[in-house]
């Protein structure tokens, strides 16, 4: 979901790398490049080229926004979970997403952009979040499928980022990946329970959820490599490690095998094993739909952003009251 950040980067002029100006800057650039080539980690206060900083702020903040907006489709089902056990699991998962958002915002802030600026970019629609969260969660089976496919795709994207050249981001990713595994497993287990012990209606519900989430999950890896112009630079910087298409193929190969265990089928008539490639061939992805959702016209874009902005605005008095209380308290202590 994070590779989308680079592929959906605005085409503004300030996105373009600027020509190196002074000799001093050229020397810094050279030493930075050498560190990257040596596989060294870059830390928060180290000198970095402006384009590296911008690309990272955009990628990390989009990732953070995705975690935060990603709480909304699942939050929808907390009060409707079928059992207390499932409710406790879902609550823990949604709380994790909030935590992941916070780790990532903190990493983005080390690059010199404030939390309020990051929020403002999300709330004004300037910053993007993963296209996947603009789809509705219609049934309980969607909770299982999100864990299995959506979190599964996220993990596949995130594991290589644990070796990202920007250390604060890499450290956040290590923590996130450790926690994300629970998300995927609980999803698969919830689906398996319905498929092995559920009624016919419940099994049909699982298949329906798979049918609706399969293609949007494949889109999470971003556009095909041929249309991913920023990838090369990001690979060079070690911000991105594996290409969109390679990750997508890896995801298809893993999940199609898992679908057999569940007893569901993927909604793709062209899906078949290719003996020669030792991989699954799959049908064409509807990129028109992808760009439409990224562009703000998915099934739930307005609802998601509206809910997020409302939560922020409704909470303003609480944030201000907490600060006022802290000021009053510190004055009393000083007296």
């Amino acid at each position: 979901m994070y590779t989308q950040a680079m592929d959906t980067m605005g085409k503004d002029r300030d996105d373009m790398p600027k020509a190196v100006r002074s000799a001093d800057e050229a020397a810094r650039q050279e030493s930075f490049d050498a560190r990257i080539d040596a596989g060294e980690f870059i830390e928060a206060k180290d000198w970095v080229p402006e384009h590296y900083r911008k690309t990272l702020v955009r990628q990390i903040s989009q990732h953070a926004h995705s975690e935060i907006v990603g709480m909304l489709p699942e939050g929808n089902w907390i009060s409707r979970a079928p059992t207390l056990k499932r409710k406790a699991i879902l609550l823990a998962k949604v709380q994790d997403e909030a935590g992941h958002g916070l780790y990532l915002y903190a990493a983005a802030e080390t690059l010199g952009t404030s939390r309020d600026q990051l929020y403002e970019a999300l709330h004004s629609g300037k910053a993007k979040y993963s296209s996947i969260f603009n789809y509705p969660t219609l049934t309980w089976a969607d909770m299982g499928v999100i864990g299995w496919l959506v979190d599964g795709a996220a993990i596949m994207n995130q594991v290589p980022l644990c070796r990202c050249s920007y250390a604060p981001y890499a450290r956040a990713m290590v923590r996130i990946c450790r926690e994300e595994s629970f998300h995927q497993r609980q999803g698969f287990e919830a689906l398996l329970t319905m498929m092995t012990r559920g009624s016919e209606a419940q099994k049909a519900m699982v298949q329906d959820a798979v049918d609706r989430w399969w293609w949007p999950s494949l889109m999470m890896f971003g556009p095909p490599d041929s249309e991913s112009p920023n990838s090369e630079q990001s690979m060079r910087w070690g911000i991105k490690r594996i290409s969109n298409d390679d990750l997508r193929q890896k995801f298809v190969d893993a999940t199609v095998e898992q679908s057999k265990l569940l007893g569901v089928t993927m909604p793709d008539p062209d899906l078949r094993w290719n003996e020669e490639r030792q991989s699954y061939d799959f049908g064409a992805i509807d990129w028109k739909e992808f760009w439409q959702v990224v562009g703000g016209d998915g099934p739930c874009n307005r609802e998601r952003l509206g809910a997020r902005v409302k939560a922020w605005e409704d909470g303003a008095w609480v944030r201000d009251a907490a600060m006022a209380h802290a000021h009053k308290h510190s004055l009393k202590e000083a007296a």
Binding site: G125, V309, W312
Partner: peptide
């Protein structure tokens, strides 16, 4: 859909 900015950011 511009959010009203908070008066003061909580310290880090």
């Amino acid at each position: 859909m511009n959010a009203v900015p908070s008066k003061e950011e909580w310290p880090l």
